[in-house]
Design a protein around this nucleic acid. Structure first.
Lengths: 211, 211
DNA sequence: GTATGTGAAGTTATTCACAGCG
DNA sequence: CGCTGTGAATAACTTCACATAC
């Protein structure tokens, strides 16, 4: 309801989960969904779904639920993905390639505008219409493309130096696949994808149940 | 301290973060670390680091801090990654390729023993010593290799059916890159990596600061 | 009848603050 | 004196439960 209220991070992540689920409902031509089915896929109660949405407004109808396509639009507006975000990808190795080949980003509001690498055999080539530039051209290409988000898919040891260049060049958000924590100016946002940490979570949980 | 106490998931994830940081300290030959530097890289206070570790025991020395290599060993024992876990990879597309080529898993206790795909041109080939099998052979290879963890890197629409086969075949933990939520037996553990959700988090945070 | 939106209650997680040990 | 380990306090998050609207 109050747009300026502070949003709990767990709520924010669940909004993405609701959106994924709603997109599936939409494809199946399901026109309405109540909080119960939306909750089912997020390991929370239905009250939490309603509470999460209530952080931003009243979108449901009592006795009916939420209109699927409306709520999709609303969530995209909340998350800011009704507009298309320009993204640059640093590192065109195996992971970078996988990201360029994944078409889901574009559908969801994120367009990879350019990729960068230091491998001279790659520079100048394109992958899925994404041109690979020399890392030397990082600043100029960011400037030209007006990209605001960067995905870091480089070896960890280069991550901090590249991050410094990215923030100086005006990048406002960084998604980091490297495992070391980055230092950034306070106005820059960073989020981490640590696949190993997820595997460790599984290892712990499996181990704990097998004493 | 109490091994059977329930561990908060956020604490568990931070243990992985501490471990990453300690591995870096170890490489730099830093022998001791106090809770402060470990906290610095996890956006929490130093008391939280001590609290997280206290869930499992007393590992520090007052006035000194924690012995880096000892704590690495302790965290690996807690997380269960002193042993090597056998992992199967479902889907040898761009993402699966990237995962096979990433050497960090093996160093951290996770060994990809086999990969599966439906593409006949890939079946029978190997990538980084990992053999790619037909999806038809899923059960027999899981049985032969005794893998306990699976990584799902297939298109979303196949994820649930494959998951059913995985759990029947005895897989105990699943790391899912697909975006739809999986139904699994209660004893099976699942964790999700949703890259789009991370980008949406950035979009929200950048948008919120630029009204 | 059904399902939202929300005060109140309950639960879980984090931080404070300091005694106590090296 | 520095830093851990932890009881007590605080903050954050989730769920309950129900009045309210369709």
């Amino acid at each position: 309801m109050n747009e300026n209220e502070k949003i709990p991070i767990p709520s924010l992540h669940r909004l993405s989960a609701y959106l994924r689920q709603l997109e599936i409902f939409s494809i199946r031509n399901i026109s309405h969904a109540s909080s119960r089915p939306l909750a089912k896929y997020s390991k929370v109660g239905d009250a939490t779904v309603r509470r999460d949405l209530a952080l931003f407004g009243k979108f449901g109808r009592r006795g009916v639920g939420y209109e699927v396509n409306d709520l999709i639009e609303t969530l995209r507006r909340i998350l800011g993905t009704q507009q298309q975000w320009g993204v640059v990808l640093i590192g065109a190795g195996a992971l970078g390639m996988a990201l360029m080949r994944y078409s889901g980003f574009t559908q969801r509001g994120f367009k990879i505008l350019a990729a960068f690498d230091t491998n001279p055999y790659m520079i100048g080539t394109t992958v899925e219409d994404v041109q690979i530039y020399s890392l030397d051209d990082l600043e100029s290409v960011i400037n030209k493309t007006a990209a605001r988000i960067a995905i870091l898919a480089t070896p960890s040891q280069y991550a901090q130096k590249i991050t410094n260049r990215l923030t100086t060049a005006g990048i406002e958000g960084i998604l980091d696949f490297a495992t070391s924590s980055l230092e950034v100016p306070s106005q820059t946002h960073v989020t981490y994808v640590d696949i190993t940490a997820h595997l460790e979570e599984l290892s712990f949980q499996i181990g704990g149940n097998n004493p």
